[in-house]
Design a protein around this nucleic acid. Structure first.
Length: 104
DNA sequence: CTTTTGACTGAGT
DNA sequence: AACTCAGCCAAAA
């Protein structure tokens, strides 16, 4: 397991409840802006979905993965709603309100 | 070993 | 504004 993967998991686990982060954002935080694809891959591997809130990680549009997830795309949206995350008409997460800003 | 694909993003047309 | 193309890295075939 690459150290980068562990760093990704660490950041994802550090996302506050009710907030979401983007793949590119996480990659940038880790100092590897070009690793956005790998960030998604790291979550795809998802070695510990119970402690890794991958449902809080979305693409830069705020759209959910859509592909197979720990419990399915519906489960992901369901969890976000349970945490107080709101969605717009487009079915995407309201980034302006729930985008995680660790730098602040 | 080489090739393909992917839970992405940004730039170009 | 919408669609297409290319770049990036790692894991799977």
């Amino acid at each position: 397991m690459s150290a980068f993967f562990e760093r990704v998991y660490n950041v994802v686990k550090d996302i506050p409840r009710g907030k979401v982060a983007t793949y590119g954002q996480i990659a940038t935080i880790l100092g590897a802006p070009r690793f956005s694809q790998v960030v998604g891959y790291a979550l795809h591997a998802n070695p510990d979905p119970r402690h890794i809130p991958c449902h809080r990680v979305v693409n830069r549009f705020g759209a959910l993965s859509g592909s197979f997830a720990f419990g399915g795309a519906d489960e992901q949206k369901k969890r976000l709603l349970a945490e107080g995350v709101t969605f717009d008409e487009n079915g995407n997460v309201d980034m302006e309100k729930h985008l995680w800003r660790p730098s602040l």
